[in-house]
Each structure stands twice: as C-alpha cells, then as structure tokens.
Design a protein around this nucleic acid. Structure first.
Lengths: 341, 341
DNA sequence: TTGAAAGCGGTACCAA
DNA sequence: TTGGTACCGCTTTCAA
C-alpha cells in the first residue's frame, strides 16, 4: 500500500492525502478524518526512503562505535547507553544506525554516512583528549553530541559526560582516609579523555595529602583482564607493593583481583580494590570489594539524555551547544583498610 | 556532488556513469576508468536513499532487541554479537539498524521496519519456545536468521544457536563426578528457549544418574543479580541445602555468590558454583569459581556467522533455511567438590 | 481547500 | 557502447 494506491482508493490526490497525514492546516477536518481512518484501515505507512529522499532528512541517528582491533571487543557500557538512546529516538520517530568500525576508519565512516544521507546526526563515542573527529563533525556541519569530552579541543560542541574527575577524587580520598599510603592506579589508555581526567584527579589528591606519586604504581593500557592481572602482579612482586588499587575498569579489576589472590593476599584485608566502571554495577553488592561506579541504569539514563540533546540540536541547529555533567555514584560495599600485617 | 553533477562534469549520461560505477559489463574499460577516477577525485558516493528507492532494497539489516521493562537492561552479550555482525555487514556494504523495543511492541516494530522499507532482513534475538515472531517473519516473507531457536515452532527457518543442551549436560555431569548430589539450577525464564533446553539437559543427566529432581532446587526468572541472590538464600536456608549451583547467567551468579558468602559458606570449598553465560568470559580466570561458558569472542564469532547466513538468504531467497550449531566451551577454573563438613 | 506537476537522486529498460 | 526516459514513493510549489 503506497500513497498513490491510498489516494486512488479515497478519490483524492496524493497531495491532499499527504497533507492530511502530515498535519498540514489547509486540509478540512472532514477530509483529514477520512484520510486518517483509511490509512489506519488499510495499514498504510509511508515509505521512509521515499520520504527521506523528498524531505532531505533520514530520521536516523548514527552511532559510530570504535572497536579495538586488538581484542575485537566492545566496551560493555555500550549496550545500556544504546538502549537508553533507543528509547528516546523511538519516542521521537527516529531510528538508530550503528557502525562498528576500527580506529583507522572512523573519519571515512562519518563522511560516508553523511554523504549517503543515511543519518541526520551523530553520537560520538569514546572521545580522545585531542579527538580529530570533533573538528571533522563540526566541519561537516552535522549535529552531534559527544558521550564524554575532549579536553584539548577548544571549539564549542555538545557533550554529556560522567564526572570522572570528581569520581576519582572521591575514590582516592576515601582510600587515603582508610589509611592507605601506597595506592596504585590501573588506568585506561591515557590518550582517552576519561582516563586522563581520572589520573589528573588521582595525582591531585595525592599531592594535596603530601603523598608523592610513584610512577611504578601507575599503569595505563587497554582495559582487559590480562592487562589488569599483569599490572597487579608486577606491582605486588615489587619490594614495596601497594596496599590499594584504584582500577579504571571492572574488566581489568577482575584481573587485579586474580593477581591478588594468586599472590596469597586476602582481598579486603591485606589489599583494597576500588573499581570505577560505567558498567557492571550489579557487582556492587559483591562480598569482596568496595565499588565506585556509575550504575548501569545511570548509563541508560545518559543514553536517553544524550539522545534528547541531539534531537534538540537537530531541531534547532543554530542553538549554542548543550553540555551536561552526570555525577557518578559512590557505592561502598565494604570498608577495607590497609594491610594489617 | 550527485550523479547528475558528476555526469555533467564528465560529459557523459547519468546512465553510463551509473553503469560504470556499478560494474556493468557494457561499459568500455576506458570510460569506466575515467568515471571511477572522477568519482574518487570529486569524492562522489551515491545517495543511499535514492538508491534504495530505485532498487527496492535498503542494504540495511534490522536487529530488533527485546528490552525488558522491568529492569531496562540489555543482555550483555548483545554488544559482542552486534560487533561481530557489524563486521560482516560492513564488509558487504550493509548497515545495521537497531530497534530496542519492549516485548509488547515487537510485532509492530518488525512490520513497520519492513513496510517502511528500512531493512532487507532481520536478525531475531531472544527467541521463546513458541515465538510468534517467527511465524510473522515467515508470513512477511522477509529473510531472517534467529539467534537461538524456538523449539515449538515447526516451520523451517534459519537459525544459529549455542548448544545449550550439551553445555548443561556437561556441566551437570561434571558436578556429579565431583561428588555433588544436591545440585541447584538457577535458570532464566523457562519460556525462553535457551532456558528450557538447559533445564531439560540438567534433568536428563540427573535422571541418568538415578538422582531425583528436587523442585525446591530449581528456579527460573529474570536473570538479575537480586534474583540470583534471593534464590540462593532461600535454598541455603532450607533444611537440606544444595552443595552446588548451576547458574544460567553470570549476572545472577554474582548474586548467588553473594548469598553463599553471606550465609557463611566458603566458595569452592563448601559450595560449588558453575555459571553458564554467553558473556563475561573474562571472569574465567577468577579465583573462586569454575566457569562454564561461551566466550565473548565466540559470541562475536556467532554474530559474524549469523550475519553471513542472513546475507546468504538475502542473495538467494529461494534456498532452504540454513542452520548452525555452536558448541560452548568448557572452562574449569578450579575443581571444587561437595561440602567437606 | 484541493490538485497537477516538478523535483529528490538514483536505476534500468529500450533505442540508437 | 552509449543515451533518453520512465519510474521508485513521497513532498512541495504553484495554480485553480
């Protein structure tokens, strides 16, 4: 059933039917009613491709997800974020178009999605400190919202971010209050903006308490389980091992805990671990660790909000960029002081 | 830059340019080369909406993900599966269109995506034993592949599934070999096909060993952490608690372990836990539990394969349905016998 | 208030 | 081997 068939059926022109269905004011109420009823009865809905072609917008949003070549895996927060965004889009009549592409093909993907007219806007995931994609999108003139920020990009743009700095500030303070003096930081790649901010806060708090930053207690890398394991093993084997770990990712934290166990330390007694991750908050009640985290549902919420911001930008492209900060939640499972030995 | 501009620039007709770019044989090699070079130089790529409209296919695949109202969360395997599928699609020039919709709106979503011409095929996620969506898609005449199976649907259709039955068979056998006699099953909703199959295998192996199935040791429900916790607490408080848990989801398993800890049992000594989940295999090296799982990378692989099967169906719609079984991996972290007390 | 017709940007049939 | 043209299904301007 297409527009022509519907209008023939009604004995009206395509024009009138189109207008009636799209809420144009110049259609008589009687006609509109008749058209709407027929459309419903005949199960008509317009072909989106034709509509897009005619109107110039696709009613779809592109999410370009960087996937790492190295381990072919996607950050687990992704699902919840998309689910949240999807809800908002679907309520507004938008679709999600997802591209999973590796780092080398990001630009090409943005350009191509835009040129081919497949999307009306973008959500940018996983920003780096100096992320060239932001300039690119600004140059392309496409509405977009960054999930996170890029602290070295000075041009104004829309973003929504978790307050990573504040989160790690509080976590570090918490460990210091418990009496820890040697606190290790197992961080993500520090060219990623979130990781950079986390380290900055960690260092700042150490300094504020007169503690020196020990480079041997700081690691940054791809947040996998083996990475966490190796980093922790190395540190625990050193002559002056840390009494606490601050870990940027739950996935790596699993490796850290394995290392602690393997080295014969007891978690929550000899050693403390604090994890920050945007996912896996369902672990918050686990017996062995205090967890510092953004919950899954807060990530979901972030997705909703980012989508709303983007739709707003699409509707009013001239408006100034929107920004939004989300505070992470602090969830203490079990207080664990430094080694008792 | 559109086709008309490009052809004007070249002094050729749109027809010829289109043919040159799309690999039609009747174009002279010289012309083709000239066209291709110009297209590259002028950064031309065809408008997908127009192309879709003209050809009748959209070069996009719909993934309709059921989201639960209850906890607004998405099964964590989703990200890896999509990443795998996305790779395959992208290599074949297809896009992914994702719809996150709750159970009540599944049918409507499939119908709408099809009617509006947004997709050429579907991957169906989270099949139930008697899943009406399969009949629907068959009736719609759209190519689709089910991730999982629907054991009560008799009509032939394409699917790709993990061998859940075999996995739980092996897990149950393993626990019995360790000496366990009271083995609890914390399962997903048993109207879900995977959960049904898991229970069937569990029961079958118990029976084969002359063990009676104890209804008080079997639970099914939404696979959340609190659900696992509550189920385990209830069982552990009973007069005859289980000595082992077989848990259908890593998320619930976290709750189970919390309950074990809280009740004063020691994991891997008093109590064993085996978890099956398609995600979170990075936990496989955790210190406390043996894990029975499909790894994240196998889920990724499943996504790739499902996508390949679907593209195959799209290319040759008349071919008989394709089916593919994937064996789960058995990963034993640490053997744990029954309670020593 | 309604309709005819010209796009939107491609593809593909039919002629040349 | 190339080009003219109708058409895919909808929107929108212009006229009636």
């Amino acid at each position: 059933m297409n527009l022509k068939q519907l209008s023939d059926h009604l004995g009206l022109s395509q024009t009138t039917v189109s207008r009636a269905l799209n809420g144009y004011p110049e259609v008589s109420e009687r006609t509109r009613k008749r058209v709407q009823d027929a459309a419903k009865a005949l199960n008509y809905s317009p072909n989106s491709r034709a509509k897009s072609l005619a109107t110039g917008h696709s009613h779809a949003i592109g999410h370009v997800i960087p996937v790492s070549d190295q381990h072919e895996m996607v950050n687990p927060i992704f699902g919840d974020f998309i689910a949240g965004a999807g809800e908002t889009y679907s309520a507004a009549g938008y679709e999600i178009m997802i591209s999973m592409v590796d780092d080398t093909r990001q630009e090409e993907t943005y350009r191509s999605l835009r040129r081919r007219g497949l999307v009306d806007g973008f959500i940018l995931h996983g920003p780096r400190m100096a992320d060239p994609r932001i300039e690119l999108l600004l140059a392309l003139g496409m509405p977009f919202v960054v999930h996170g920020r890029a602290s070295q990009v000075t041009a104004p743009y829309s973003w929504l971010d978790t307050n990573n700095g504040r989160a790690f500030e509080r976590a570090t303070q918490f460990l210091i209050q418990l009496g820890h003096r040697k606190i290790a930081l197992i961080n993500g790649h520090e060219f990623m903006d979130f990781a950079f901010r986390r380290r900055e806060s960690y260092l700042q708090v150490l300094q504020a308490h007169g503690l020196s930053a020990d480079p041997s207690l700081m690691r940054s890398g791809e947040m996998t389980e083996p990475y966490g394991y190796q980093a922790a093993i190395d540190m625990l084997r050193s002559p002056a091992p840390p009494s606490a770990f601050l870990v940027s990712s739950m996935v790596s934290a699993i490796g850290v805990r394995r290392a602690i166990h393997e080295m014969g330390f007891e978690m929550g007694h000899d050693i403390s671990v604090i994890t920050h991750d945007d996912d896996l908050s369902y672990l918050k009640n686990g017996p062995d660790v205090p967890i510092f985290t953004a919950t899954r549902s807060s990530v979901h919420k972030a997705g909703e909000m980012a989508a709303q911001m983007l739709l707003q930008q699409i509707r009013a492209p001239q408006d100034p960029p929107l920004t939004k900060m989300i505070e992470a939640e602090l969830i203490i499972g079990q207080s664990t002081g430094p080694a008792m030995t």
